[in-house]
Write a protein that binds this DNA or RNA. Structure first.
Length: 178
DNA sequence: CCCTGATTCGC
DNA sequence: GCGAATCAGG
């Protein structure tokens, strides 16, 4: 996956909105959170809402300790999560703000899709969408290549583990209060 | 252990 | 330029 102009714009937008790197990575699809962070740095828009303390820089990164081998694949797996079944996607297309609501059922019955979901053509590449299929939308709902995650989801969750935590977790906001 | 961003460096 | 590996922290 390359960084097209559109993808970069979305990256900037989401980053500015305060989404985490992993969230953005999932939204963009096809890239890891590291890729997102790396791109963010290259675009020189790391700071965000954070204030950088001036006067006491603690840059002590020593890459000399990094092993020169051991390159592997990046994969994640597991299960868990569960709760909400409604996903709201808000995208800005040109000068028009589109809001798409996708209702997904985790039961043995899923019909409401044909009524509420995606204003585009039919179900297009709407895979099978079983109760064990992750229903996380990927891509632009207005585009032909719009599709769903489709990965195996837990029986109690409409999403796979990765998307599940992205869907209902305040992320950074959940930092413990003390 | 889960996550977050930051940095370095081989490609 | 890209992103995996790694670090440092919550």
């Amino acid at each position: 996956m390359s960084w097209t102009d559109e993808r970069v714009e979305l990256l900037k937008k989401l980053w500015t909105e305060g989404l985490s790197a992993s969230q953005i990575a999932a939204q963009l699809g096809g890239v890891s959170r590291n890729a997102v962070i790396g791109k963010v740095h290259r675009l020189k828009l790391s700071g965000r809402a954070k204030s950088v303390s001036t006067g006491a820089p603690k840059a002590k990164r020593s890459a000399a300790t990094r092993p020169s081998s051991s390159r592997g694949s990046y994969s994640r797996g597991g299960g868990g999560g569960g709760g909400s079944t409604v996903t709201t996607v808000t995208r800005t297309v040109g000068a028009t703000v589109m809001k798409t609501e996708a209702v997904a059922l985790a039961e043995t019955d899923q019909r409401p899709i044909e009524d509420v979901v995606v204003p585009i053509s039919k179900q297009l590449k709407l895979v099978e969408l079983n109760e064990n299929t992750c229903k996380w939308p990927q891509g632009d709902p207005l585009s032909e290549d719009f599709h769903f995650c489709g990965h195996q989801s837990e029986e109690d969750s409409p999403y796979c583990k990765y998307h599940a935590r992205l869907a209902f977790q305040p992320s950074s906001e959940r930092k413990r209060t003390r």
